[in-house]
């Protein structure tokens, strides 16, 4: 019955994996530092326009987002352009309230420094964007950012 003899000493030695946790932890910390938490689930599709003269938004904590585009779930919500504030669809009239609520959440010193980033699908008509801008003006939020991607060189 020695057909199934275990081969001892012949196989290659096991790799020492004692430093594996350290490597993984290093990766973990790298990702924790370089990334930020996802804040909302997108309910609208956005293909951002391209631009060359773009600036980085430095402080993510001082940015609020307004998403505009056709709904992701077009079977239920149709294909008309919709506005998304926080986690739900909204209409133009909700923006003033959204800005007011956003102010309430922030410390007093930061309230005037907030930038509103407009993440708008490039196929959108300007009418809705103009309406949003008018509402923001009325609400006293003057710093805005037209979110766009860096254009690849055409050459």
């Amino acid at each position: 019955m020695s057909k199934f003899k275990t081969k001892k000493g012949k196989g290659s030695a096991a790799i020492n994996t004692s430093s594996l946790p350290d490597i993984i932890f290093m990766l973990l910390f790298f990702f924790m530092v370089t990334t930020t938490m996802r804040e909302v689930t997108y309910k609208v599709k956005m293909k951002l326009p391209e631009a060359t003269e773009i600036q980085k938004l430095e402080k993510k904590s001082l940015v609020s987002y307004i998403y505009v585009g056709p709904p992701v779930n077009s079977k239920t919500f149709g294909t008309n352009t919709r506005i998304q504030l926080n986690d739900q669809f909204a209409v133009v009239d909700d923006i003033q309230e959204f800005v007011a609520n956003d102010r309430q959440k922030r410390p007093e010193a930061d309230r005037q420094k907030v930038t509103f980033s407009l993440k708008v699908d490039s196929e959108t008509r300007m009418g809705i964007v103009t309406d949003i801008k008018q509402e923001l003006r009325k609400a006293g939020a003057f710093k805005i950012n037209y979110s766009s991607r860096r254009a690849r060189d055409k050459n």
Binding site: L28, F31, M32, V63, L118, K143, I144, N145, S148, R149
Partner: peptide
């Protein structure tokens, strides 16, 4: 550690926010 790593990979985003900054005039 792998579990934690995968959790952070899924829940976070890496995209840098870029765009054209403008100031709106007061109403």
């Amino acid at each position: 550690a792998f579990l934690l790593l995968i959790f952070f990979l899924v829940t976070t985003t890496m995209d840098v926010d870029t765009g054209i900054t403008r100031k709106l005039p007061p109403p």
